[in-house]
């Protein structure tokens, strides 16, 4: 070992002694993680059910019905995205976007929800979508099966709250996710619900030590809720283009702050 290393180490040691290091992961996480898996399983059951109805409509050529079912179906997927994303092949085949393919919408490889969204809204047709729909349903079922037999890695669960906010911050706030249907606000709802669920599950573990942190996080979730509430329409939301610039900024700031704050959640719970 080298002295240069020792100098580095000494800095570390001082941080250590000043207590900047978070606690160790404890077995108190067992219950929240178990609860979360149950939550995810329920969402998946709903996703399979909804996707069945959605793909049936697509295959029956019922454009309007399929359009109606599109956003609510995605809601369950968006809520559990951090876990779904653990299977990157399925995430790509279920939820990738045209930008992921060099020829964009024209690319024959472009699959999943957004491929169908493109057909329904841009072409107002279900033509050629039947095989895409079949594949989507099969993928969603496969996902349910894989997740059922997955032991949830605690750091992925706790980190999931931040991941959901990162998703929104990086590629959703711009309205590029559901660019044909503009149903982005539904997806937001799913993402926020999923993140909040995680925070609520681990809340008892940090309620005492991190009261201020939780207060800030709750306040930001609150901001999101009140902002989204303005755009409520029946069971769901109006299209994304109706979102005012001001509200978009409010949402963006809340999302960035949530991403920033929730990124510390893992560390706070000892899961580096």
């Amino acid at each position: 070992m080298r002295m240069s290393g020792l100098v580095g180490a000494s800095a570390l040691a001082f941080i250590l002694s000043s207590g900047a290091f978070a606690q160790e992961a404890s077995l108190d996480l067992v219950e929240p993680i178990a609860e979360y898996k149950i939550y995810v399983s329920e969402k998946l059951a709903k996703l399979v059910e909804d996707t069945t109805a959605f793909t049936d409509a697509v295959k029956a050529g019922e454009v309007d019905k399929a359009k109606e079912l599109f956003a609510p179906t995605r809601l369950s997927y968006e809520a559990i995205e951090p876990i779904a994303e653990l299977f990157s092949d399925l995430d790509a085949s279920i939820d990738s976007r045209a930008d992921d393919y060099e020829k964009a919408e024209a690319d024959p490889e472009f699959p999943g929800f957004h491929r169908i969204e493109y057909g329904l809204w841009e072409k107002n047709s279900t033509e050629g979508l039947a095989p895409v729909a079949d594949k989507l349903l099969a993928d969603v079922k496969e996902l349910e099966g894989r997740i059922a037999s997955l032991t949830f890695p605690p750091e992925k669960v706790v980190g999931g709250a931040a991941v959901l906010m990162e998703e929104v911050a990086a590629t959703k706030i711009s309205g590029e996710e559901d660019r044909y249907s503009h149903t982005d606000l539904w997806d937001f709802r799913g993402n926020f619900d999923g993140a909040r669920k995680i925070v609520d599950l681990v809340r008892p573990l940090i309620a005492d030590k991190e009261a201020d942190f939780l207060k800030t996080v709750d306040a930001n979730f609150e901001t999101v809720d009140t902002t989204l509430a303005k755009y409520k329409d029946g069971e769901g939301y109006v299209t994304y283009d109706k979102l005012t610039d001001d509200d978009r900024k409010v949402l963006a700031a809340a999302v960035n702050t949530l991403a920033e704050d929730l990124s510390t959640l893992r560390g706070k719970l000892g899961l580096d």
């Binding site: 160790e24 992961a25 404890s26 077995l27 996480l29 067992v30 219950e31 929240p32 993680i33 178990a34 898996k37 149950i38 399983s41 032991t151 949830f152 890695p153 605690p154 000892g270 899961l271």
Partner: peptide, 19 residues
Amino acid sequence: PPLKAFIGPLSEYKVYLAV
């Protein structure tokens, strides 16, 4: 293994018992 390594298995078992 660190204590952390048991969190996943223990919670998975609790899910099993719950189901």
